[in-house]
Design a protein around this nucleic acid. Structure first.
Lengths: 120, 120
DNA sequence: GTTAGTTAACAACAATTGTTATTTAAATCT
DNA sequence: AGATTTAAATAACAATTGTTGTTAACTAAC
């Protein structure tokens, strides 16, 4: 009876992690689900949600949100995302590339504001 | 019979615009709806959606999206938004303020990528 | 073998979009 | 000016989509 929390490497989880590894397409839950269900047909979508949330919480992947849809990125190094309104791709941008030739019309950042930082 | 499109200043639309004017709270559709329905009780939520979309399309307001929920900003001057994960406020940041004392963990930009710009 | 973590199979929810008949603001015609 | 016309806008739904909640059954690791 371990007192430390651990996590189990279930088949579903292994497949999800395999799919995400080196995936630069910022897949949605459905993208992941479609891949998993092809290999393990009885997988439920809730399981995929749970695993992606779990992995994001453990900082193994990053969760982003594009047009109300959650997407996941195995690249946890600092970088920005540009969502193209024309081709709908999600393009990774390094902080140094912020002044590239793309046309930006909206920037949303997530984090902790300085007021809340102070309060801790 | 006018050949140019025009737009009608309906009661609903006037109330919505009045609510948005100088509103710095980035209200959601529900925020707007609650205000409108208090003054015009039979207003449907679809009308609010339609008007906010209309105003955003005409560049009278800006639409942003936070955690899957649309929000609206009457300030159309260039500025960024910081969503605080702790106090949940949406804080306006001028481009010059980007290196302020907030802790940023995610940046998403919307726009048109350079490839799509070229193609036009 | 035991147990805590995980899963499947639902139901439920919240935000948004679709449909269509009715209403209305504004342009045009007296 | 007031009446007529018409395209835009609205109300009242239904429907859809992405997501979360519940619980009993299952399973990987101890």
């Amino acid at each position: 009876m371990g007192h430390l929390t651990y996590f189990k490497l279930t088949n579903q989880r292994a497949i999800i992690m395999e799919f995400l590894k080196d995936n630069i397409n910022h897949p949605s839950v459905d993208d992941v689900y479609n891949y998993v269900v092809a290999k393990l047909p009885r997988t439920s979508k809730k399981t995929v949600y749970a695993n992606l949330e779990f992995l994001a919480e453990k900082n193994i992947i990053k969760q982003i949100e594009v047009k109300g849809v959650k997407r996941y990125d195995p690249n946890i190094k600092e970088h920005y995302h540009l969502v193209c309104r024309s081709c709908h791709r999600i393009i990774d941008l390094l902080p140094t590339e912020i002044n590239s030739k793309h046309k930006i019309d909206s920037v949303t950042m997530y984090g902790t504001c300085k007021n809340c930082l102070k309060r801790k």
